[in-house]
Design a protein around this nucleic acid. Structure first.
Length: 543
RNA sequence: GGUCCUAUGGUCAAGUGGUUAAGACGCCACCCUCUCACGGUGGAAUCAAGGGUUCGAUUCCCUUUAGGACUACCA
């Protein structure tokens, strides 16, 4: 077979040769240990939590080593293309502070010298390499019918399972030049397949940055390199792009681990050196049966990174929670270095847990609470307003108009050595502090306490004194004693039968009347902000 | 079916051929306290199972089991 002739037959009008292309993609001039990483999502229209997790590893690896972190859009499957995808991804990356060094906006700017960063715009590049492989007898055209939908694939799979074969050599690899010529003359389209040298028995070994040494059966499948429409498959685009664009560490989900041998064979056929790999664990959720499920947008809203914005999660918190999943010593470091920048953390992208973590909202909330509790009231106000502008328009006017009051509300039990941790996302604010903005729904007191409750409220009207916290509480105690409540906690504990209750009970009654709930931050501060008049009005509802 | 990956409390997990097997979240109790929190102290809770190797295995090897991934002209 004259492969050279075959290559010309298949690719008569390629725009570039491989040599021409490689001139345009010189080796990056970087320090020896600098990592070039990439985030390479397919444009599904949203940023997946798992993708973000990988991007975080990419970013840290590159930025800490003086390397390059770039964004490449893998839009080779035109069926799945969603407009504006790169803008959405770029938005999220930037809003978290992880702006890529190189990227491209569709129909807009391109930043970086190794573009295009859209695979669909690199068609000629892949064609050049495909032609090269054909001319060397390493790839061949396949005229088989395109497998249309999943049902076809499943059927094919079942058949394969039945015989238990692992090899998948395509019949078209035996076509003669004449047959191919005839097919072409008939206008038949073709895909390009790799002519695999694997025998389905030999094994290869490699080192994975997350999993360690992996021994795996080498590839023996004549995988498609170029599809019918001359678009590359991921399997082909990965070696070509990552080589040309100078990636030296590929961070990708562990679902790619089994296709490593295929990629290894393609790299070899192309004469390329393989980068390092980190096959990072996927993020899972526990289902009702207690089994793990890959986190997915359909079942889990948090799979879409925009969820965290909508809910008003603190971005720092999301990042720190994820950092802890990457290197679980992160939170130990954080405790020792509460104010340090994340980039000071001794990150190790090659020491990622090999286990698949389960996404835990309770933990995230805790991280978020901790971070938010240390914000100043002003910072909280800004964040709250920012969130409301995007997600709670009905409250924006109010927030702007009454900035002073809202800030004061936010300041209750804040900016203290031991701040409260009521809020872990901004959408909670109006729920948590509803009573600061309008009279609460009337609290239903237990029947057996009703009389005491009313008595306390009625009496308290005469005792209310907001001139200072000391006086305020002194008066409450005075009243409590008068009504038969204990003012000394230890005495109350010793002789509970002597009293109707203790001061705490009295405070609870007042709190319930004022805030409509049994738990709230500092009652005195609340009453000050509400003002005596409003407090009395609320008391009057009950007695 | 085949090929892989993973296996330490409920969750995230550190860790080692000999340890009282860290820490965090969550849970429980107590203390503090005007409530709830916060904070403090303490507690319950883990090396999946079975075989080896070894003087000794949670740690190394094998098997089993469980969970997960892949097995597309999707990425």
């Amino acid at each position: 077979m004259d492969y050279k002739k075959l290559a010309d037959l298949l690719f008569p009008d390629n725009k570039f040769t491989v040599e021409e292309i490689e001139k345009k993609y010189p080796k990056r001039k970087l320090e020896k240990n600098a990592y070039v990483t990439r985030f390479a999502p397919s444009p599904t229209g949203y940023m997946h939590l798992g993708g973000f997790f990988q991007a975080l590893i990419d970013y840290n690896l590159a930025k800490r080593s003086g390397g390059v972190f770039y964004l490449r859009i893998e839009d080779t499957d035109q069926k799945r293309e969603i407009a504006g995808a790169s803008a959405i991804i770029l938005n999220i990356l930037t809003s978290y502070g992880f702006l890529p060094d190189e990227y491209q906006l569709k129909g807009g700017v391109t930043v970086g010298d190794y573009g295009p960063y859209y695979q669909s715009e690199r068609k000629e590049i892949y064609k050049a390499y495909a032609k090269k492989l054909v001319s060397e007898g390493k790839a061949f055209p396949c005229f088989c019918r395109k497998t249309e939908g999943l049902s076809d694939v499943k059927e094919k799979r079942e058949k394969k399972f039945a015989v238990g074969i692992n090899e998948d050599k395509d019949p078209c690899r035996n076509l003669t030049l004449e047959q191919i010529e005839t097919n072409l003359k008939e206008g038949k389209t073709f895909a390009i397949r790799l002519k695999s040298k694997g025998d389905g028995v030999r094994k290869i070994k490699f080192h994975d940055g997350a999993k360690g040494e992996v021994e795996i059966l080498e590839n023996s499948m004549d995988a498609v390199l170029l599809k019918n429409d001359m678009m590359p498959t991921y399997n082909f685009a990965h070696p070509v792009d990552d080589t040309l664009m100078g990636t030296n560490v590929v961070v990708r989900g562990e679902e790619w681990l089994p296709s490593y041998p295929l990629h290894a064979e393609i790299f070899e056929a192309l004469g390329f050196e393989q980068p390092k790999y980190i096959h990072s664990p996927l993020i899972y959720k526990l289902n009702e049966q207690g089994n793990k499920n890959k986190i997915s947008k359909r079942k889990h809203p948090e799979a879409d990174m925009r969820y965290f914005d909508k809910e008003g999660y603190d971005k720092q918190a999301v990042v720190e929670y994820l950092m802890n999943l990457i290197n679980s010593n992160f939170e130990n470091w954080r405790r020792v270095n509460p104010d340090a920048d994340i980039m000071e953390f001794p990150f190790d992208g090659f020491k990622i847990t090999a286990n698949t973590p389960i996404f835990d909202f309770v933990k995230l909330n805790d991280v978020s609470k901790e971070i938010i509790s240390h914000y100043s009231a002003e910072k909280c106000y800004e964040e709250l307003l920012l969130w409301a502008r995007e997600n709670s328009l009905e409250n924006v006017d109010y927030l702007v108009k009454d900035k002073d009051y809202v800030t004061k509300v936010l300041n209750i039990d804040r900016e203290k050595p031991k701040p409260r941790k009521d809020i872990y996302k901004w959408s909670m604010f109006f729920d948590v502090f509803d009573y600061m903005f309008s009279a609460p729904a009337k609290f239903e007191v237990e029947e057996e306490n009703k009389k005491d409750f009313e008595e306390v409220l009625k009496t308290y009207k005469k005792y209310i004194d907001l001139s200072s916290k000391e006086k305020w509480f002194e008066n409450i105690k005075k009243m409590a004693a008068e009504l038969g409540y204990a003012t000394d906690n230890s005495d109350f504990k010793k002789n509970p039968e002597k009293y109707k209750g203790n001061v705490a009970k009295v405070c609870e009654y007042i709190r319930v009347a004022v805030t409509g709930r049994k738990n709230s931050p500092d009652l005195y501060e609340i009453m000050i902000l509400l003002g005596e008049k409003q407090v009395l009005e609320r008391l009057a509802q009950f007695a």
